[in-house]
Design a protein around this nucleic acid. Structure first.
Lengths: 258, 258
DNA sequence: CGTTCAGTTGATGACCTTCAACTTGCGTGG
DNA sequence: CCACGCAAGTTGAAGGTCATCAACTGAACG
């Protein structure tokens, strides 16, 4: 596996490493000077792989760093007073978590590994320092946060308006396209989260999720085998998901103002 | 009314102006040098007040600026293929819109005035330039975006999990506390959006919203008079809203993993 | 080989949407 | 100034979607 904390000296190797590493967005596409890439690399701490169930951070922890996922997957969630989890997001390789903690200096959510997962820790004070020295880095950070806002907005739309069917289809489409962006298969992947997690995230009962998987399989949309899923009809699934992911039809406006 | 585009010379006046202006977050609390505040002020364009129904920007518009709301209110929404609106957020004085457009360079949503509204336009390329010259400004921008992510996450939780009752209670609590932060009354305010907008936003039918207002009034939570609302029992409303706003009990975990 | 927990499937019912009729508020024109 | 007409909001009845309760199956583990 590639390693973000390779000696900062060997730049060629570093670039290669970070291309498959989640941080490549933060450095490679913006034409940062080579020495700047090395500086960025210096502040990044590669942590030992996390086992399933390990926490990256917990609600209430002091905010010190953001984290990029290099391999595996993570769920973020808020705890409710009664001890229940409310899942806020699933994060895949190439994505950054902890951005919601910047403004208050404290993590408003927890992040837990869903499988064996390796992450890079990016101490935020150093990132900010570096960003003020490298404007393109600052820009890239703002751009990443903007995308996070936009994707939250999309999800928000999804949860506010869509039927159970549309929600699950949207989740699958989202996972599919995000995995594809990172060079994984768009049509066949592993669901690292439990049915319970999916239900929690989508605002549905576990039983509903289960029934939906069954129905999706019956109508030839997907083939499900426990945690393994293969998408057999991507177009139909996209259509079922509605606006999310672009290019949808057959959507059902239930409370629209038109 | 205070005016953000006052001559940048008179700094005392400027600070006073921006204190009541939505932009004070961007400059005042971070101890920016006086001349820097003036520079920030220079790039801000105060636009003429918008009438109800006017657009700040439309979906698909090229991204050139973010906008701070000085007075009035705005809704942001995405259009669905069939022409229906999906409302993403309601924005009040002191809040910034357009942040979701940064990463793609194009507005992924539209913003429409809900009443007579005045806004400040902040050209983004100039803001970025200025931010690279003034690190504290860059930090403040990142902080504001972080808060936007966090509040989206809260709303996301809300829509995914809560009953109609909890949703409306949460919206009212959110409006109340946001208005209070800006020096308005927390207990009595004007609902600038229609029932239709509220329903659309919360993922509920108009009729449901109407019934809920009626029920809330019957049990002494609020007094509603068309668009005017007075909150009579803030604690009970907070409790009904659940985790949002802190300090909730009687919550109902319907799909929790515990 | 039994225990345990995640996942599946079925039956019932609650909540909220939908459809429909009615009321209220408000701007326009007689 | 009042009357009309339309849009927004309210209220009632019926039906659908999804949660809940319960039983069962299958996989992982000691």
């Amino acid at each position: 596996m590639n390693d973000c904390s390779t000696k900062p000296l060997d730049l060629a190797m570093l670039r290669l490493a970070c291309q498959n590493c989640s941080l490549h967005e933060l450095c490679l596409p913006v034409g940062i000077h080579q020495e700047d890439v090395a500086r960025l690399d210096e502040i990044i701490r590669r942590k030992r792989p996390l086992a399933r169930g390990d926490h990256v951070y917990r609600l209430g922890d002091e905010f010190r760093a953001v984290y990029a996922i290099r391999a595996g997957s993570v769920k973020t969630y808020a705890m409710t007073e009664t001890g229940g989890e409310q899942i806020i997001g699933f994060y895949l390789p190439g994505e950054i978590i902890g951005l919601d903690a910047i403004h208050s200096g404290m993590h408003p959510s927890s992040a837990k590994s869903l499988e064996t997962t390796s992450i890079c820790e990016i101490p935020f004070s150093q990132l900010e320092e570096l960003a003020s020295a490298i404007p393109t880095l600052a820009r890239q950070l703002v751009r990443i946060m903007s995308r996070e806002i936009h994707s939250d907005d999309e999800l928000l739309t999804l949860l506010g308006k869509k039927s159970a069917e549309e929600r699950l289809a949207s989740l699958l489409m989202s996972l599919s396209s995000r995995l594809q962006q990172r060079g994984f298969s768009a049509r066949e992947f592993h669901l690292s989260m439990s049915r319970n997690d999916i239900g929690n995230y989508l605002g549905l009962a576990v039983e509903t999720v289960s029934r939906l998987f069954t129905r999706f399989q019956q109508i030839g949309l997907v083939t499900v085998n426990n945690k393994h899923i293969r998408i057999d009809n991507l177009d139909a699934l996209r259509e079922m998901a509605g606006i999310v992911g672009g290019g949808a039809c057959g959507e059902k406006i239930r409370t629209g103002s038109t």
